[in-house]
Write a protein that binds this DNA or RNA. Sequence first.
RNA 1: GCGAGCGUGGUGGAACUGGUAGACACACAGGACUUAAAAUCCUGAGGCAGAAAUGCCGUGCGGGUUCGACUCCCGCCGCUCGUACCA
Length: 820
Amino acid sequence: MERDYQPSVIESKVQAAWDAEGVFSRSEDPAKPKFYCLCMFPYPSGKLHMGHVRNYTIGDVISRYLTMNGYNVLQPMGWDAFGMPAENAAIKNQVPPAAWTYDNIAHMRGQLKQLGFGYDWNRELATCTPDYYRWEQWLFTRMLERGLAYRKKARVNWDPVDQTVLANEQVIDGRGWRSGALVEQREIEQWFIRITDYADQLLDDLDTVDWPEQVKTMQRNWIGRSQGVEFSFARPGHTERLEVYTTRPDTIMGITYVAIAPTHPIATKAAESRPELAAFIADCTRIKVAEADLAQAPKLGMATGESVIHPLTGEELPIWIANFVLMEYGSGAVMAVPAHDQRDWEFATQYGLPIRAVIAPQGEDPTYDIGQAAWTEKTGMTIASGEFDGLPFAAAFDAVAARLEALGIGRVTTNYRLRDWGIGRQRYWGCPIPVIYTDEGIKPVGDHALPVVLPEDVVVDGQGSPLVRRHDFVQTIDPETQRPAQRETDTFDTFMESSWYYARFASAFSQDAMLDRHANYWLPVDLYIGGIEHAILHLLYARFFHKVLRDLGLLTSDEPFKKLLTQGMVLKDGSKMSKSKGNTVDPQALIDLYGADTVRLFTMFAAPPEQSLEWSDEGVAGAHRFLKRVYSLVADAVNQRYTDVPFTVADLSPEARDLYRKLHETIAKVSDDIGRRYHFNTAIAAVMELVNQLQRFTPESAMDQAVYRQAIDRVVVLLSPITPHLSTHLWQALGQSTPLHAIAWPTVDTAALTRDVYMLVVQVNGKLRARIEVAAEATDVEILKQARAEQQVRKFLEGMTEVKTILVPQKLVNLVVKPA
RNA sequence: GCGAGCGUGGUGGAACUGGUAGACACACAGGACUUAAAAUCCUGAGGCAGAAAUGCCGUGCGGGUUCGACUCCCGCCGCUCGUACCA
């Protein structure tokens, strides 16, 4: 065989063979367990970046490994094709978003094929095609029927110059990114879906999935279920009452004021007669809508002049407008207890409002100093609370709740931080929302009229959505009355498309239904792999859709993703790759230079999946060097025509036996690292160790040659999930007739792993002092005797008495001593 | 601000369940081969002291638990992700 490793020749040849044989097409197979391995599909932004390469290599390695372990593995791929970048590109280059998107898809599909990922391309989908989004429109129509979709007002960032709604990322330092105009908050009527109806299930079912604990914790906190009390204050001079929600009714006697959101009806009403209030409220709308900005803005407030009556003391308390109170959470009003809530404390201190301590710690607590900070622990006891004095948290909670309930003004409730999902976007490049506005109100277009097709021949100029100006799109007829009607011009949030694509892949060929019975064969996804940045929103929305689809009878499972693997970022020089920082690395250039196998190998070797990966061009060169070494190792073995005689372990020379043991230790390590741990970097390191040992080994006898030859064969197989092209090529060169992708994963010869003697570490007081070689059958007493006899150990035992001995089998001995 | 992570040699990382810190690489230095270079191969290396044997120190910082802590607990510092219209 040729002496030189030529990746470009090998890779295109191997890929052509896979294509011709349809190696990765999948259908149901009752003889094998199914495994659905899914990577988060990409946004077709133009070309693949390193994050994609990393993500998809991880999925491909696992898929190939499991296929060799007897699973019927499905690995599909598609395109998250709607979204803002297409509109931005359209503005910049005067290309319609559709054309730009389809070009990008064609290019990126080619790149994925070049990287050798084993996808079932028959199932490919792009979310911007009517074939796909018609079923999303169909599902939305079902949601409308069931009352899961509704309209309400919501705040958006408004650019007064471009006359358009801006995404949070398009608002930079309070100004529109293109116009530079000061952005203001506006309230507009929007479409919402009731994800909060599923809040309890979304929370409780987290216990049933095999996800990283950190992601489950983030979702639990995001949903934020809390037990609290909802009650109302009477207002002097008004008949309507003011509703608040609190998780700390035990502090009710410490209320010194009430804070309401700037958009609360009481604030709006008060501002009518007081211009300074109106000005303050207007000021509050200068901050962009993002929670991070709202929470970090300086806390500002203004007294409304209105008041409430404390329900238990009858005291009159002022109502303040505070810019940090959110209308979306609870009722948009909070009872303020500055002594026991840090935000209330800061606000009260800033505006000279009274602070009244009503909880005291049990015992000494140096952090308890209400003059310096709020004391927010729930471990204290009520004080200065009249009849509620001397109660711990739970008892005080119950007593106060019972009293408010008895008064007929309050009740214990469950509250969620999770809000309903706003799914309407005032943008063009998205799925049309299938409703019409008629003189009888809003109606769905009806299933027979689906899909509502998005016109693709448009001009995008950044001044609002071009859909609004397309009269041929907007003007329609109400099929019920035959009178003119207007189509909805809002489109769906692109999270809608990514919330069910995983299910459509499993039912990709269904023409007359969103999902058919095949979906339930493949689902749930056995392993879902993608960026940690999707830990909350995308994963929560997809879980929600899955439950809705189940309740509609389309699916039988409760959760979409059984197991989740979240990968870290790809960094260069310590920070995220980005065009603005000029630290991007183009995978294409590396594929052209070294081949796909090298890029795959380095990406898997540089870090385990869940950690961030620091890119290194030198590291890639090193990975390539390793593959060249493997290539020439195999080429030598082939050219030497080593014998393949049968052998028994007992008859091997000591060196050959060492090599044979190392081989089987490596098989065990690689299988565990790929199959269980998903730590490919240590799997590769283990193969490198084996290759190093092989290079040091010169086979002499026929049996030496046979062991050596067997080890070479296994190296090729062990690397094959990671470097499938090179492995396929070498496998053929080694004269193997069964195709590599069809063979079974190597098994471990456990007999080869046993050792007659092993190393034991000897410590004195936890410090390493010696290593001893111990016979496998040695008793504890013998081991301790041998340890104490060691020169380096005796040195530290002199003048000491042994207090304790610790013996960890196969690992270490620790002699604990103290001066005699 | 809030929620969740991460922090180990010059660099990426290893140490999986509390049991040998630095596997495997990268970069570097020295050597072999070469007219020379590249490529390839061999050797070396956490820091300090020492000729060496060896000793002491060492996993962001400060404390704690333990026979033993990179690993567990508490408090800080720094970085990363998310924060509901980026995907």
